[in-house]
């Protein structure tokens, strides 16, 4: 499987995207792309906040070629760890982000390796 290199970004770099995502989440009822459990992004990037020990939302659908950025808003560190080993963020402390570009269609499941109860997936169309 071909995949781009994971990239860690400084909190500031990701802050705009995260802020947009949160704003979008707040208006979920009116924006289909950000409904709580199935978000769909047509464009090239989406940000998934991690808050209260959960990836929000748990299922995100993106187009192939999209970059997904996760930002941890909890005081407790979390990871973004794909269950098949494709991507792995390492520990993300509060306000740290991790990005990964999904090039191939498929369903990519991931967990937090510190709190493996936390599970979610990216659906790439």
């Amino acid at each position: 499987m071909i995949a781009d290199t994971p990239r860690r970004s400084a909190p500031l770099q990701a802050s705009l995207a995260a802020a947009l995502a949160l704003l979008c989440g707040g208006a979920a009822l009116t924006i289909a792309a950000c409904s709580p459990n199935t978000a769909q992004a047509q464009a090239g990037s989406v940000t998934i906040p991690i808050k209260n020990f959960a990836y929000m939302p748990m299922t995100v659908t993106v187009a192939a070629g999209s970059t997904v950025t996760w930002k941890n808003l909890d005081g407790e560190p979390h990871t973004v760890t794909s269950t098949d080993g494709l991507f792995r963020s390492g520990a993300l402390d509060q306000d740290e982000s991790f990005s990964f570009k999904f090039t191939k269609p498929g369903v990519y499941k991931y967990i937090c390796s510190i709190h493996p109860k936390m599970r979610a997936e990216i659906v790439v169309k």
Binding site: P77, T79, T81, G85, R88, G90, A91, S113, I114
Partner: peptide, 8 residues
């Protein structure tokens, strides 16, 4: 512990 091995 899991915090010691977050790199996998």
């Amino acid at each position: 512990g899991e915090h010691d091995v977050t790199d996998g």
